[in-house]
Design a protein around this nucleic acid. Structure first.
Lengths: 221, 221
DNA sequence: ATAAAATATATCGTATACAATTTCTTGAGA
DNA sequence: TCTCAAGAAATTGTATACGATATATTTTAT
């Protein structure tokens, strides 16, 4: 993996896992020290993160973690509600015992992470469950869009989620897997739609305080 | 508009309008001369174009206009087929006489451009018709994704389209506007779905020759 | 003591420099 | 004449420099 990609993933991970909360500033030289590269490389990944809406860059003011607006949060979830259920038929075409097993293991892991209150893992696994499902539809263009929306959803949860709502409390992902095993497309679609709507409705609207972040400890070597 | 944005749009325009064909190389210093900025600014927009799949950057080999694979072409169109018809209901909620008038003017312009064989204008207007429609749905997240897919479709047409297939020969966009005026959601959805499938099926699979490009003439001042 | 102005510090935007890599050109040998 | 190696030119990757802008601090006047 290229070095840029490595830095990109680390920062994205920190944002998605709520270690860098919405509004946190990301000064270039502080990051370049932490990662041991020049500002050039840092700017590159910050610009990418900005295009993907994980950070916001204001001219001459630098980057900070995006604080999604209420409208943005709503639109991201609506987009998923529109697309993800529609992927079920294509996905079912590739559904077999091996996939079922793979996803059940993921759901299991997810459940454990949630039970153990491992917030970061729980967030990652929840997002991964959804976008790996999207990937199985076979359409890489849509899958990568869904991947981005899943990560944005994690950021949205950081801004608007209750602590309990990180996992999908409206019932287990395993329920969906049962429906997929039965090859019941319409029920699976309904389940997915309901699931996402439930997540959306669980969002609340309040801002959160900030803190000082030790980049050296987060990323340094 | 920022300078970067200006450069970005010019290059994107040139790609989308088939002035920079798939496979065309985009050397940084040639572009920086043409636009009168340093390579720094050029690299920034090339990286953005790469993230959006309009160019491909290979390590130590620079950027060239993306030559979409058959799979990519298919997936982009499939994505539009999945999403665009689904936007019709939300779109209809905002549909009124003013919008109808606006879109009819666009459709008219489009028709004229096609009749006059003004390829570049025709391509731009066709894409714009679709993504402005998407914008009217009210979901900016989806609309900007559709916008990107429309531009990618233009690039795909450059690679796989017949000359005649640039415009939407399966009938006028005005037909859709009639259905929207009637507030007939399901018929409008069907029309859109059929329209996009027709475009997809009109693609043919053959590569095209290259030429030498005079960046100074294209972009210079 | 407070508010406004002035200075200092931090941070970003852009250009440039130089090393690393690729691509092109040239020439020697078969 | 063709092939391939060696050198030259072109091109990219990354770091650094420096001016411009924003933010924080100090100073000064009321």
């Amino acid at each position: 993996m290229s070095n840029d990609e490595h830095i990109y993933r680390q920062i994205l991970k920190a944002i998605v896992e709520h270690q860098l909360p919405p509004g946190a500033r990301l000064p270039e030289d502080r990051l370049s020290e932490a990662f041991g590269v020049s500002r050039t490389g840092i700017r590159k990944v910050l610009q990418r993160l900005a295009l993907e809406h994980f950070v916001v860059i204001e001219k001459n003011k630098g980057a900070q973690v995006n604080r999604p607006s209420e409208a943005e949060a709503s639109e991201v979830l609506d987009s998923r509600i529109l697309i993800e259920p529609q992927l079920i038929p294509a996905l079912l075409a590739h559904w077999d015992a091996a996939q079922s097993k793979r996803f059940r293991a993921m759901a299991q892991e997810e459940k454990q992470a949630e039970a153990a209150n491992m917030l970061a893992d729980s967030i990652q696994l929840t997002a991964r469950f959804h976008y790996e499902l999207a990937t199985l539809s076979g359409n890489k263009v849509l899958a990568s869009f869904i991947e981005q929306l899943c990560y944005r959803s994690s950021l949205i949860l950081a801004a608007y989620g209750t602590h309990g709502s990180v996992g999908c409390e409206c019932g287990d992902h395993a329920q969906l897997l049962d429906l997929l095993d039965q090859k019941n497309a319409s029920k699976a679609q309904n389940w997915m739609s309901h699931h996402l709507k439930h997540i959306k409705s669980s969002l609340i609207l309040e801002s959160k305080p900030e803190e000082n972040i030790d980049f050296q400890r987060l990323f340094g070597r």
